[in-house]
Design a protein around this nucleic acid. Structure first.
Lengths: 84, 84, 84, 84
DNA sequence: AACGTTGAAATAGTTC
DNA sequence: GAACTATTTCAACGTT
């Protein structure tokens, strides 16, 4: 009900939420721009961006894979009553 | 060898590039997390996140095309129980 | 009215497209149901669905990882002028 | 040991479960591919896939809530150049 | 039964 | 402008 009338508290809250998110998204977009620049620079130095992306992707997957391995190990140990 | 760099100086460069990008992506991911938090908080305060996203989207489009603004506004007012 | 000038070729085509997709989606939904059943049955036999899902996920990631590895290898070989 | 099955008969069961699910998921993925093809074909015939998806979505909702139908209809007719 | 989490689907953006 | 990739959105699942 608090939010029933416009211009009320809910209106202020809404405005605040929107602004905070828009601010964060600006920063995020700026970082995306920085990343693009690094790629462009790398390309200028003769690196193949496609390969670069593939390397990055693989490293990310490896990391995720390791985390999965740990998670499943823990899950099994847990199921066997060996931890927790 | 100019094209497909490997080893030596190029190896150092490659490492640097990878690290810089991974660092920037971490920061980007952190911001994405912050944004998620704001949404979660808003939700906790009774806002409908789906509609919030529509509002954000519309505001972004605005610079280019304001046409759907009335529709989304009505949608949001409706969600807030301000109009039937 | 809809197909207003309906009866036109576009109307027929549209109808056909919609129906084909809806049919395929029904089949897809049926498969999703089958999968759910297998999980339920497994659970009934004492298996932990969470672990099951984790195993499935890991197997999928392993496969994807292998594909990535192949892709990057090819990319490198290509960059070195060793294939194609 | 009943809870956390491993080895022997349970191992066979586990393998069977995993295989059945992976098989079903393959079929599901194949259907998703078929659907994508239909969309691609429709696109080739001049249909707007985005609007097609909206139509599908609306038809699905219909059983529960027909409210937005008019809007999407106008949208689609417009896309087909039948109005405005 | 709502909540957060996670996986799939869709859209947007980028590159060639 | 077509294909590919990245991001965002949506829906399902398990959890509390």
């Amino acid at each position: 009900m608090a939010k029933a009338k416009a211009g009320g508290i809910a209106g202020d809250q809404l405005e605040s939420i929107i602004q905070r998110i828009e601010r964060l998204e600006e920063e995020k977009a700026a970082l995306a721009g920085d990343i693009r620049e690094v790629f462009a620079e790398a390309k200028g130095n003769g690196f193949d961006t496609k390969i670069l992306r593939q390397v990055l992707k693989l490293r990310k997957m490896d990391k995720a894979d390791r985390q999965e391995q740990d998670a499943i190990l823990e899950l099994y140990l847990n199921a066997l009553g060996m931890i927790d």
